[in-house]
Simulated assay, not measured.
Amino acid sequence: MLLPETTPPVWSVLQPLTGPHSDGLPYLPATPATTSWGRLPSDADAPVMSVDPGTTVVVDTVSHEGILEDQGADPVAFFGRHGVTAPEVLADAIAICRSGTHDLTGGPHVVTGPIEVRGAQPGDLVAVHMGPLTPRTHYGIISSRHNRGLLPARFPADGPVSSTFCLLTDPGTERVQATLPLHPTQAERPIRFPIQPFLGTVGVATPGERKHSVPPGAHGGNLDIRLLVTGTTLYLPVQVPGAGVYVGDPHFAQGNGEIALTALEAPLRATLTLDLIPAAEAQARFGSISGPFALTPEFLVPTGLDPDLDEAVARCGENAVTLLGAMFGVHPEIAYAYLSAATDFEISQVVDLVKGSHAMIRRSDFAAVAKEFTR
């Protein structure tokens, strides 16, 4: 017997300390003691885990959506209004919500960490290799609030916050999609789009005051680059001894731009390998690049960050020229010409106070001069 499309699928919710988190790998759950809410770790924060370079770890992340004060600070009640039963609400989300640890002078994000990478020093690069990024729930939220989206004069249209509930379909298959109704009052969910889980926040600790969780920077942080899916690597310049890696702001999906302030926010269990590239080697391989950059199986991805979008794109262009010269020996004039003819410069996001741009440089275009990347 075929069930109607509106029947919720049966999902296995990944509660803390359950499911695939062992296999001999270090596991970091999300608890009030292992997370920061609103601000990012600094050099004053003791690591909640310490690992050697090259170690693979499993980290639980919790989404801020559903636990925030403007959503009632009660995830069981909030998600219950959308048909989610109490056992399907994550216990760690409930515990963090009740902990009173939200620094209201900061942002909304919950990040897990910091993780010390032993031997890391300022000037080095930490390479965060993205392994499996597993959804912990079958639901998530897209929110508009704070008059900070792309169209703040229009959205949210009714009240200070709009939280759109998304439900996933086809559990346990490769056809998992997110679904939406055509109208908030309708039950059927004919809008379907693929999920591509990634971590919106991946960063390293900074010296001095703990940074606000919203604006990204040289430390990484809330980059919101949707390319950072399983199989990609993000490179971050170490700011303090030990690096202090943290992750959070998990997404099931996002479009470039993230125009409504958030995308499809929902919790993930992340398998990450943390590697270290010493300063001299980093300089020789990548040049004097400013800020984070990434490698996917297909693309080299420099970034640019600035409150002004024009300047963010310009900084991305500068970093692209630098990387092409250091990695492939391309003369700056040729690199500039190539980038104009063959590379897409994308808007990562326009809603995080500091705007982001990233370029998508095809690695295959440099196959004749490409070097092997082992870490």
Rank of each mutant, 00 (worst) to 15 (best):
H82W: 14
L104H: 14
A73R: 14
A46F: 01
D74P: 04
G83S: 09
F79M: 10
P47K: 12
D103I: 03
P75N: 07
Y27N: 07
T55D: 02
L28E: 11
M49A: 10
T55C: 06
G107H: 02
V48H: 05
W37L: 11
P47T: 13
D60P: 07
E88D: 15
T101R: 15
D45N: 15
G100N: 05
E88F: 01
L28I: 09
V48Q: 05
P108D: 10
H102D: 00
H64N: 06
D70Y: 11
A86I: 04
I67F: 01
G83A: 12
D52Q: 14
V76Y: 03
G72L: 13
A33T: 15
G38W: 00
V58A: 06
T35H: 10
S63Y: 02
M49S: 03
S50H: 03
V76I: 14
S22G: 13
R39N: 02
L28Y: 05
I94W: 02
G19P: 08
C97L: 05
P53H: 06
I67R: 13
I96K: 06
P20N: 08
Y27K: 10
V76Q: 09
T18I: 05
G66D: 07
D43C: 12
L28K: 08
D92Q: 15
L40V: 02
T34G: 12
G19I: 05
W37R: 07
Y27A: 06
R98F: 01
S50R: 15
V62F: 03
G24S: 06
T101W: 00
M49R: 05
T35W: 12
V51W: 03
D60V: 06
G80K: 13
T18N: 07
T35V: 15
P26Y: 05
A30V: 09
H82T: 03
D45H: 15
P75L: 09
G54N: 04
